[in-house]
């Protein structure tokens, strides 16, 4: 009898200790560790898990039982990864390429925003690395780019809930991404140019058509890299599933 009441106490204690939100969050992390699951697929699987938990709770099961049953129904994260990569390997690689380009863009942006930092030069040539191997400069450079790499990696793995909604807002559609990113890049470019005293040249150039054209072409060349990155991100971004469908 005493053993039984102790068992009941144990069950009640376990139930009190079980936090559904924490459990779902841990499951999300486990899913995020699967390289073959895209952000959109993970989001879809999470809504499925939550629906499934709600379904079990309606059948009078407690949070913990509902979670474990739902989790089992959805399947093991590694197996899910395999199923999805079998179904569409191109989508997985496309998303990887998207994150790599986004990382490059973030590095470039970081480089422009903090122009006075000593370890500024981020994209060094291989010879630079061979000359500065195990040097203070290399270490500075790494310290400098590390926050950006961590930031993009965390974002890619869905570990930043607070950034998730902002990210979803910007990447909702290709048009929205272009209309937001183009002005940002152009304003940033103008801001950096004005810092180096170019506006005076710009004012002078206004009076000479040739100078103005030259200025325009220089500006265009300076913008080629960011514009290429924007074009690449726009092309690679995983939006094809988010358009409003034409109903049959």
């Amino acid at each position: 009898m005493a053993g039984r009441s102790q068992h009941l106490e144990q069950i009640m204690e376990n139930q009190a200790r079980f936090d559904l939100n924490v459990a779902v969050e841990n499951w999300r992390q486990e899913l995020a560790a699967q390289p073959n699951l895209t952000v959109e697929v993970r989001r879809e699987l999470e809504t499925h898990l939550r629906d499934s938990i709600a379904g079990f709770r309606q059948r009078c099961l407690n949070d913990e039982e509902s979670f474990w049953l739902a989790r089992r129904r959805v399947g093991q994260p590694p197996q899910l990864g395999e199923e999805f990569v079998k179904a569409n390997p191109a989508a997985v690689w496309r998303e990887r390429a998207f994150w790599i380009v986004l990382l490059l863009a973030a590095l470039q942006l970081w480089n422009k925003v903090c122009p006075d930092f000593e370890g500024k030069i981020v994209l060094h040539s291989p010879t630079w690395f061979s000359h500065h191997w195990a040097s203070v400069e290399l270490l500075q450079s790494l310290v400098y780019i590390l926050p950006i790499i961590c930031f993009v990696t965390f974002l890619a793995n869905g570990r930043m809930n607070w950034m998730d909604s902002a990210f979803r807002f910007v990447f909702r559609s290709r048009l929205r991404f272009v209309t937001i990113s183009l002005p940002v890049v152009l304003i940033l470019q103008l801001f950096i140019s004005s810092g180096s005293g170019e506006p005076a040249d710009f004012v002078n150039a206004m009076y000479f058509t040739n100078g103005f054209l030259e200025m325009g072409s220089n500006f265009f060349i300076a913008e080629i890299w960011p514009l290429t990155v924007i074009a690449l991100i726009t092309w690679l971004m995983p939006t094809q599933n988010r358009r409003t469908p034409k109903r049959a």
Binding site: V41, H48, G75, F84, K86, N88, N241, P245, K246
Partner: peptide, 20 residues
């Protein structure tokens, strides 16, 4: 559940269904 979504996504890629 794990089997359903790859099938749905394949049908979507083939243009037979759409999503939102």
């Amino acid at each position: 559940d794990g089997m359903l979504y790859p099938v749905l996504h394949r049908l979507e890629r083939d243009g037979l269904i759409e999503s939102e």
